[in-house]
Design a binder for these strands. Sequence first.
DNA 1: TGCACTAGGTTTTAAGTTGCAACTGAAAAC
DNA 2: GTTTTCAGTTGCAACTTAAAACCTAGTGCA
Lengths: 172, 172
Amino acid sequence: MGKLREPLSEVANCGLPAALEAIGERWSFMILRGAFNGVRHFEEFLTEIGIARNILANRLTRLTEAGILHRSPCPDDRRRVEYRLTPKGLDFLTTMIALRQWGERWATGVPSNPVLCDVRDHKPILPVTIRGHDDRILSHMDLCWIDASEVKLEGRSSATDESANVRQLGSG
Amino acid sequence: MGKLREPLSEVANCGLPAALEAIGERWSFMILRGAFNGVRHFEEFLTEIGIARNILANRLTRLTEAGILHRSPCPDDRRRVEYRLTPKGLDFLTTMIALRQWGERWATGVPSNPVLCDVRDHKPILPVTIRGHDDRILSHMDLCWIDASEVKLEGRSSATDESANVRQLGSG
DNA sequence: TGCACTAGGTTTTAAGTTGCAACTGAAAAC
DNA sequence: GTTTTCAGTTGCAACTTAAAACCTAGTGCA
């Protein structure tokens, strides 16, 4: 298979292009959502998310190649194949929940059911947030880009040293 | 423009399909990344992320229609158009950071520079996580789906009441 | 053993999408 | 008033997607 598509600009070392290369295609999120809900088999994905057969086969192959799903033949029924989330796949949950919550916050009239809860207390989870080193919740106003060579790791905040390589984020 | 694509399965009231309808296309994440980094104009996006002209025009229109970007003509130069993130767009940052961090954690040899930091102390932000009502960090093992009618809102955890509508998440 | 059926794919073909390059039209610069 | 710039649009070829038919190994059952 040839490749017309450019590999989503490698400029600025950033995990985004890499991530999008793995899961950026239509349906990939939905397939992973299925996987998180216990869907494991081809025909099950097929009916669960209403995707075309050939596309599903292709996406499962790609997600497997990307190390997000693990493909293993079932020992008891050798026609069947089991797709399971790898650690990398499981680690994707945070992103998926963040996206889902965003969709719910801004979609019109989505009552959202069932609700994702803590098994311990059966209370809904908090909205996913960005947190500072001190666990403070940060908005885009509180963020900046700093050159890797200049980040303060554990040292005490040495006042407001005006560094050249600090860029504010987002719109003013 | 006709539409062959199905609207990503509305089964299970979930914000994901809604979210993907808005930003699920190739390039949309990259365009938003640009926007968060202060990119505002057509030609700027064009050179910054290496997208085709017609595709960019199409995506900017769609993101604007989805209420994620706001399009306004520049008062000082009436040829120019300014695209800015709306509150909905700004709220997408959490998801983008989560995806980016995931990409960085699992990509091979991405040193990640510059680093996203807290403007206050110049220390790197924490990895984005899922938190319970009590702010505990939760993994997929700690999560379950509960029917909206049965979620505990503020009440004391009434022991481990074995409810019928509780479904464990992810693989066992 | 033979036959129907299932699971998980491929193949085929039409329809839709993407990417490049060339073009447009209005506003600014010179 | 000619050239340049900005933000698009158009035309076309290459590619991807979707739907339906087909394929193949493995099961269930008589």
